[in-house]
C-alpha cells in the first residue's frame, strides 16, 4: 500500500517545544482541566515545565483500557505533516536522548517538531 503524502497529527507546545502526536491517538480536545490528577505533557515526556503564558488545553487520548487526559499548551492544531519532513531518530540521538515517548522528528521551515507517543510515554512514566 503506498504511503500517504502526509501524516495527520495534532501539534501542540510542551516545555516550550513544538510537539505532535498522531491524530488517530487523539479522541478530542477539551478546555484545560484545572486538576492535579491530569498529567501534563511535560511530566509524561520529561520536558522542562512550560514557562510560557500560552493557554493550556487538555487532549483526551484513546487507550484500550480507557481514554486518558493530558494537558498541553497552545497553539493546538490539527495539521498534515508531509511525509518527506518526517525522520526516524538518528542513532546517537535514539541512544542518548532522555525524553520518554520520543519516536521521531519532523523538520520543516518552522524548525523541529518532536513526534511523540503518549502511550509509550505513559507506560514509561509508570
Amino acid at each position: 500500500m503506498p504511503l500517504p503524502e502526509a501524516l495527520e497529527v495534532v501539534s501542540f507546545m510542551a516545555g516550550g517545544y513544538r510537539c505532535a502526536v498522531e491524530a488517530e491517538q487523539v479522541r478530542t480536545q477539551l478546555p484545560a482541566q484545572d486538576s492535579a490528577s491530569v498529567p501534563t505533557a511535560e511530566q509524561l515526556l520529561g520536558l522542562p515545565c512550560d514557562e510560557t503564558q500560552n493557554a493550556r488545553r487538555t487532549l483526551l487520548l484513546k487507550h484500550p483500557a480507557g481514554d486518558y487526559a493530558v494537558t498541553v499548551s497552545d497553539p493546538v492544531e490539527l495539521r498534515g505533516l508531509q511525509i518527506d519532513t518526517i525522520y526516524p531518530l538518528p542513532p546517537l540521538i535514539a541512544a542518548r536522548n532522555r525524553l520518554v515517548g520520543l519516536r521521531g522528528l519532523a523538520l520543516d521551515a518552522e524548525g523541529v517538531t518532536l513526534l511523540v507517543d503518549f502511550l509509550e510515554a505513559r507506560a514509561g512514566a509508570r
Binding site: 546517537l92 542518548r96 536522548n97 532522555r98 525524553l99 518532536l114
Partner: peptide, 15 residues
C-alpha cells in the same frame, strides 16, 4: 536544530 533531552555534547540535528 536543537533537540531537547540530549546531553549537552549532542547539539542537535542538521538537514
Amino acid at each position: 536544530f536543537f533537540v531537547p533531552g540530549c546531553p549537552a555534547s549532542l547539539e542537535g540535528v542538521i538537514n
